[in-house]
Design a binder for these strands. Structure first.
Length: 178
DNA sequence: TGATGGATCGCCT
DNA sequence: GGCGATCCATCAG
């Protein structure tokens, strides 16, 4: 997997990829692209303490807290570019995920739930995703869905949300999923 | 130094 | 379908 590219290129490439975090594994079914020219991106104001990882090496994890409650996991691409992991199809360590989530409902749907199921927290901030128990592998070629982004106020209508066509592991349906 | 708001989720009606 | 929870980086004074 070549992470060294702009988020709008990396985000669709990550659909269908295999994410492995400490024995838990899943197929990435939904992502969103955030590039430095995007008013909604955390990297938009330039490097700060909080978003430093986005300007660090590609292929590393960028973890942040959302709404003071949830952890969200992104993958760093080119400097200033990040791809938010929004949903997975769980394949391994499912019992572990259910235990961490406390329910089997929406186990890995939505960025907050996904990070919680995988046990990802700020402790994983900036970690490279090339370790045996912490990595992303290229998946097979898959058909993609594209749509506007979710849950943000700025430039939400940019078509930078990507999904795995036909998957039932999506946080919300895609408008264009015909 | 204090106030503000966000790449969300779950429970309520 | 709508709203409240909850914390830290950032911005304003």
């Amino acid at each position: 997997m070549d992470f060294n590219r702009p988020a709008p290129d990396l985000a669709p490439a990550l659909i269908g990829a295999i994410l492995t975090i400490r024995g838990c594994q899943g197929v990435i079914t939904e992502t969103e692209a955030y590039s430095p020219d995007d008013p909604a991106a955390h990297s938009y104001p330039g490097p700060t303490k909080r978003n430093a990882a986005i300007f660090g090496p590609c292929g590393h994890a960028y973890v942040y807290r959302s709404y003071g409650l949830h952890w969200c996991l992104s993958v760093v691409g080119q400097p200033g570019h990040a791809v938010l992991i929004r949903a997975l199809e769980p394949t391994q360590g499912i019992a572990e995920m259910i235990r961490r989530r406390g329910t089997d409902k929406r186990l890995t749907l939505g960025p907050g739930n996904t990070a919680q199921a995988l046990g990802v927290t700020i402790a994983d901030y900036g970690h490279p995703l090339d370790a045996p128990d912490f990595n992303i592998q290229q998946g097979p070629e898959v058909e993609l869905l594209t749509g506007p982004r979710i849950g943000i106020t700025k430039a939400a209508d940019w078509p930078r949300r990507f999904g795995l066509k036909g998957s039932r592991y999506l946080s919300k349906p895609f408008p264009s999923s015909v």
